[in-house]
Computed example of a mutant assay.
Amino acid sequence: MLETKDLTIRFGGHVAVNAVSCNFLPGTLTAIVGPNGAGKTTYFNLISGQLQATQGRVYLNGVNLSSLSPSARTRAGLGRAFQLTNLFPNLSVLENVRLAVQATQEGKHLRGLNLWSIWSDHRALTERALEILQNVALRDKQDATVASLPHGDQRKLEVALLMALDPDVYMFDEPTAGMSADEAPVILNLIRALKQDPTKIILLVEHKMDVVRELADRIIVLHNGTLVADGDPADVIASPVVQQAYLGVAPADKEAA
């Protein structure tokens, strides 16, 4: 279980996230929604360690992660896609994913990559990397350098690296942002597939309510850094206060929503 307890951060006199307490269970995809400036990405940053909380704690499986760096939290089982963007921009797509697969094996106390060993020892790493690239529709670009990829392919690679790390918690912050209508379904299908694993927790920040309706098992709503709604997607979306104040839907538009 992932848990945040009274998670808070202040920037001077501004409280960006205000005492947010939530539990997230395996086998559940939780969508985090709210207007721009609501604190969604800041909340993500506090969980993943990009920001240090003013007060409050983050727990994963009962272990307090609050004092850990982002990389240490990743090793503990938190995975956030954007942290891995352009991990090695001058290496190939395949090399990036293969290194992430290696890091996962080392984290599980298996033998890592020995540069002096024979190539056959690396075969399992390469095969796993190629399998992941096939899943994210990047197999045909395995030899391209990361820096040369268009934006949509870089987003696919972020998900590939995250899959290679095999975290307990997948954190997606607007995963289809900037992607074309043809590219976005690849990422959404990957998230659908990840949902089938009952051992994984998925957190999703997403502005597209059609995506939220389809994928989410639960919705939490932030406004001015405060948790204002939490529950079943249909109930949360139907709430007049959420529709009017936080999702930008006027009462007259309720049925259309």
Results as ranks from 00 to 15, higher is better:
120 S>D: 07
190 L>I: 14
104 T>G: 12
138 L>H: 07
106 E>F: 05
36 N>I: 10
107 G>K: 11
194 L>Q: 14
21 S>L: 08
62 G>R: 14
16 A>R: 07
97 V>W: 01
39 G>C: 10
243 Q>A: 15
108 K>A: 06
45 N>R: 13
53 A>K: 01
229 A>I: 09
5 K>D: 06
198 P>C: 12
100 A>D: 01
59 Y>I: 09
176 T>M: 05
247 L>P: 00
175 P>Q: 02
38 A>Y: 02
235 D>M: 13
220 I>R: 10
178 G>Y: 11
235 D>C: 07
70 P>E: 12
98 R>K: 15
223 H>K: 14
188 L>K: 13
63 V>Q: 15
30 T>D: 03
19 A>T: 04
215 L>I: 09
9 I>C: 05
175 P>T: 03
142 Q>H: 13
98 R>V: 10
226 T>C: 13
210 D>R: 08
185 P>N: 04
180 S>M: 10
215 L>A: 06
2 L>K: 04
221 V>M: 05
153 D>P: 09
173 D>Y: 13
61 N>W: 02
168 D>M: 13
89 P>C: 10
77 G>Y: 14
82 F>H: 10
248 G>R: 07
130 L>S: 11
64 N>C: 13
134 Q>M: 12
126 T>A: 07
108 K>N: 15
236 V>I: 14
124 A>T: 14
29 L>R: 03
193 A>I: 10
14 H>S: 13
90 N>E: 13
226 T>L: 03
132 I>D: 05
174 E>V: 08
235 D>E: 15
129 A>Y: 10
24 F>N: 06
193 A>V: 03
15 V>Y: 05
61 N>K: 14
44 F>W: 08
35 P>M: 04
83 Q>T: 05
91 L>F: 13
68 L>M: 15
78 L>T: 07
75 R>N: 09
